[in-house]
Each structure stands twice: as structure tokens, then as C-alpha cells.
């Protein structure tokens, strides 16, 4: 695990360490089981095609979980996630690489907390942003 990031170390415009995911249909079944979301478009090819899709697609909530991991990996065990927002603009299919990325957009203090806003998104193998979003985190200070 990476070293703890502190609020003082952060600068606006800096990139979060990216996270690569390669979801499979097996993972979508696993996610269906763990989350209880058994909508068939996520694992049943015939059902998905009957719904005018090319095949199974990722659960939106699984994509937001990838963005959650991107951010929680970065903020480390002493940081806290305050807000995680994203839109499912483009569909992602299993079997394709997805890269979760983020950039720091704002660093500020509010109500005694040291906060950072980030733009976060998922990029598909063609470099398209399928899942734009934002996150707000609290980071620890080197001053304690």
C-alpha cells in the first residue's frame, strides 16, 4: 500500500494514481450476488441483446465502486471519503480494460476540515470517458 498522503502534499492539478480494472462476466455475477442486483442485462447475453444491447454491460454501481476504490486507495487509511458522484454516460462491457483516473481540482479548508475535491472518471480501452464524476475527501494534516 502507498504511503499516507497528507493535505499539505496535495496540489491542484495533481493526478491520482490510476487504477486498472478488467471486469469479467464472472465478476458481474459475483457483484450481482454480493449486491443483490440480479438484473439480467448484467450477465445474460440473450436477455441483454433482447434489450437492444450488444451483450451484458457492467452494473453502474460497480463502476462507481471502481471510482470509490480509486479515491480510497489514494487517501489511505487516515483519509475519509465525504462525497462520491458519477454519471453512467457510456456503457462498459465485460472483457475490456477500464482505467479509473482522477485529478485534484480544489484544495481548501472548511469547518476545521482539510478538504480536497477531485474530478474522477473511468476510461475505456479506446480512451473514452464513460463515467465522469467528482469526489470530495478529508485528508490528514502533517500538523496533526
Amino acid at each position: 500500500m502507498a504511503e499516507q498522503v497528507y493535505w499539505e502534499d496535495v496540489t491542484e492539478g495533481m493526478e491520482l494514481p490510476f487504477l486498472v480494472k478488467e471486469p469479467t462476466t464472472r465478476q458481474l455475477v459475483q457483484y450481482a450476488g454480493a449486491s443483490g442486483d440480479f438484473y439480467e442485462i448484467h450477465y445474460d447475453k440473450d436477455f441483454a441483446i433482447g434489450n437492444q444491447l450488444d451483450g451484458p454491460i457492467l452494473h453502474g454501481a460497480l463502476k462507481s465502486a471502481f471510482l470509490g476504490q480509486l479515491v480510497t486507495d489514494w487517501i489511505g487509511p487516515q483519509g475519509a471519503l465525504k462525497r462520491l458522484q458519477c454519471q453512467y454516460r457510456g456503457m462498459d462491457a465485460p472483457g475490456n480494460l477500464i482505467t479509473a483516473k482522477g485529478t485534484v481540482t480544489r484544495k481548501y479548508e472548511e469547518d476545521g476540515q482539510r478538504l480536497v475535491d477531485c474530478t474522477v472518471w473511468l476510461e475505456n480501452a479506446d480512451g473514452q470517458n464513460t463515467t465522469p464524476g467528482n469526489a470530495t475527501v478529508v485528508l490528514p494534516s502533517r500538523q496533526g
Partner: peptide, 10 residues
């Protein structure tokens, strides 16, 4: 049905 997006506050 499609999920359009989500916004969590913790």
C-alpha cells in the same frame, strides 16, 4: 431500465 448515475454523501 438503466441506472443513470449516483451521488453519495457520507
Amino acid at each position: 431500465r438503466l441506472d443513470g448515475g449516483s451521488d453519495w454523501e457520507y
